[in-house]
Amino acid sequence: MKVEAKVLLYLGLFFGIMNAVYWNWSLENAGGVMMFAGMLLCFLPGSYYYFWSRRMKARPEDDPNATQTSGAGFIGTFPGTSIWPFTLGMGAFFVVLALVFGIWFLIPGLGLAVWALFGATAEGRRGGTH
């Protein structure tokens, strides 16, 4: 995790220094604000990875001599198969149709989307089939 953290933190540092230079010499604000946000964009996940790199053991990815098998084991909890992405997609489809054919398409569109959100949340609760 250390490598990822370092890459992002140094990149953020670079943006920070560049931003200081830019803010001083440019006569506008938009670019400076965006560059400042660019710095934060690097620091946000970078500091999160750094926080984790200090409290977790080295992963197989961190070891140049690691084999495929050392990465085996528990990764996370995921539902095995799920209908809800499809339902959500159909909901989004009808919502977009509402822009073209009339507002009443929102009724099935939002209905399907909300149904899918409830379904996916409940599925996450059960953990699905592994």
Binding site: A30, M34, A37, G38, L40, L44
Partner: peptide
């Protein structure tokens, strides 16, 4: 999201 809001801040 941060970049989205930074667009608003830039404006």
């Amino acid at each position: 999201e941060l970049m989205f809001f930074s667009g608003l801040f830039a404006a």
